[in-house]
């Protein structure tokens, strides 16, 4: 996921389970949007167990990012256009 790796992001959770990422977003993010696996975020299909919950706090996006060897990371990044796109396409 070259696009994601080139972003300025903060790692919220490292080596977490998909359930832990979902719980964190539900408990800490002001706005939650549900998407299906394969939904494109930063131009790459998202990996996860549905329902995948993405957090939105204004223009800040909090989302899970899975790698085979490192498990799932929960990342947070500020991106106005992607936040708007996710808000318009995801299920609330």
């Amino acid at each position: 996921m070259g696009c994601i790796e080139s972003l300025k992001y903060e790692i919220v959770l490292r080596g977490a389970s998909f359930a832990e990422c979902r719980r964190y977003v539900e408990e800490h993010c002001r706005e939650r949007v549900t998407v299906d696996p394969g939904f494109k975020i930063f131009e790459k299909p998202i990996i996860g167990v549905p329902p995948i919950v993405i957090g939105l706090d204004g223009e800040v996006v909090t989302f899970p990012y899975t790698k085979p060897c490192y498990g799932t990371f929960l990342l947070r990044t500020e991106n106005p256009s992607e936040a708007a796109r996710i808000r318009s396409l995801g299920k609330k």
Partner: peptide, 15 residues
Amino acid sequence: HNDAGISYAATVQSI
């Protein structure tokens, strides 16, 4: 063999 594997399997099934 781990949580990431579950995520990939769920993704393939869902897609």
